[in-house]
Design a binder for these strands. Structure first.
Lengths: 211, 211
DNA sequence: AGCTAGTTTGTCATCGACTGACAAAAGACA
DNA sequence: TGTCTTTTGTCAGTCGATGACAAACTAGCT
């Protein structure tokens, strides 16, 4: 997926980064987000608090790191779809690919679900997550606009992405409420169902090259 | 719309609240959100910083106060729709009523557009706004579920609200980008257009009592 | 190995958001 | 007027976040 830097410095940085995420997520889950200080996270990795802020823009970012991971999967997955594919199928395929990847790696899934759990507990984290999602949505909309050759004034790329994300959110949410930890495959099914409902009729009503 | 308290204390509190919002919004627009301190806002109203935090949970809340105002309009408008009306028309009508109300009052509109401008400039504010919207969406979904008599496990109320809000966001955004300050009525038109695109075919595909 | 240049980290100082505790001021009411 | 309740101000303190500078470290070269 990515080139190996192999430089001693690089590897050390990556290890510190991962260690900070792990320690933070673990502490957040144990004591709660607000009750955990940056100082404690840094201490757990034996690093100065100042260094923590050199790896992350803030306490929030480290808690949302798992979502950054997933969004990167999603953007990459869309970029990998064949150029001829229409937007809606491409988006759905990208989403399903990412979900499969997520459910396949226990480590990634655990981090993601913990982060999701935290956003459900801490309003400030939910806020940050939604804003991050908005950024990703803009990225995806731009990619779709590029594929379709539409101008910046066409609302349909943004609208389509918003619909898909809205549906995915709802599907994901209900999927989680019915216990995903046991059967990760049900998560994807729940999302797909919501997508079906949300995009029903788009093909018929938005015209041929669309949806 | 609301009972008159008339108590001297109550009136004083309301005046302080409004003065804080006005001062805050004015300062935020002039110097930027991050560059404005709570101390400055409090000083502008001749109140101690401690008192500021008794009126608002934080600096963020005072900046988002105009959205709270609008969301309240929206929730009230939906509650006022006839019980027999189906969800989608009811939601759309509620949204249009609120937009009309918004565009009709210059003071409310100014505060709202300034707040919207600020969220476009400050990531932290955008985050808070999105979270707030999520709360409102849950409120509206619950109200729709109540109207339709569906259980908590039906995704359609949530999904419908998400679709409408997603469309409204996109419509609002593009409407703003094409200059709303001149013609507030174009704002509503832009939103309606996005709503049409997003919900095209829902009636046909979701079945009779729905959409 | 030893030297040098560039990078990463720690220390220190500081700011601003936010909170608890308690005292002072002001409205409410007999 | 005197008392009771609510609101406000003062004070002290915690925590998140950032700039500045020095110390430790790595890379690459001799």
């Amino acid at each position: 997926m990515r080139a190996e830097p192999a430089s001693l410095r690089e590897r050390k940085k990556q290890r510190t980064h991962a260690a900070l995420v792990d320690a933070a997520v673990r502490l957040f889950r144990a004591r709660g987000y607000d009750a955990t200080t940056v100082e404690e996270i840094a201490a757990a990795v034996e690093v100065s608090p100042r260094t923590f802020f050199r790896y992350f823009d803030g306490k929030e970012e480290v808690a949302l790191a798992p979502f950054v991971e997933f969004d990167r999967l999603l953007v990459d997955a869309l970029a990998d779809r064949p150029a001829a594919e229409r937007p809606l199928p491409a988006l759905r395929a990208a989403y399903e690919t990412s979900l499969t990847h997520l459910a396949g790696d226990r480590g990634v899934l655990d981090r993601f679900l913990t982060a999701h759990f935290l956003t459900g507990q801490t309003p400030a984290l939910l806020a940050g997550r939604l804003r991050r999602q908005a950024d990703t949505e803009r990225l995806l909309a731009a990619e779709i606009a590029r594929r379709c050759g539409t101008g910046d004034d066409d609302v349909r790329p943004h609208l389509l992405v918003q619909l898909v994300f809205a549906a995915a959110r709802v599907g994901f949410e209900t999927g989680c409420r019915r216990g995903v930890l046991d059967q990760p495959e049900k998560l994807a099914a729940s999302v797909v169902h919501a997508l079906d409902l949300a995009t029903a009729g788009l093909t018929r009503h938005w015209g041929e090259p669309w949806a």
